[in-house]
């Protein structure tokens, strides 16, 4: 007969905290990858446009950082998971 695993309240709490940390990591990690992929295309086009016309720099930079908002959403979700 297999030995029964007895879990204490502390162990369950620690496990929950671990799961939260894992969720927070995934939220930030995946949104980071998403933003990177989106920025790659926009960034290439922005550099190309700026190389031809220096006046485009400000606008190009603005367009390039727009996908950063996705990471901010991920970060907010992570913070909510960890601290709320």
């Amino acid at each position: 007969m297999a030995a029964e695993v007895v879990m204490t309240v502390e162990m369950i709490k620690a496990s929950q905290m671990g799961m939260k940390a894992l969720g927070a990591g995934i939220a930030v990690g995946l949104t980071g990858i998403g933003a990177g992929v989106a920025e790659m295309a926009i960034g290439s086009a922005a550099v190309g446009a700026t190389a031809e016309n220096k006046d485009m720099f400000g606008l190009a930079l603005l367009f390039t950082v727009i996908p950063e908002t996705i990471v901010i959403f991920g970060l907010v979700v992570a913070l909510l998971l960890l601290f709320v």
Binding site: M40, A45, G48, E52
Partner: peptide
């Protein structure tokens, strides 16, 4: 997608 980056760069330059 990563291979496409230089393509996007050149095509944008040509359009500008």
């Amino acid at each position: 997608k990563l291979v496409a980056a230089p393509y996007i760069y050149v095509c944008t330059r040509m359009r500008v």
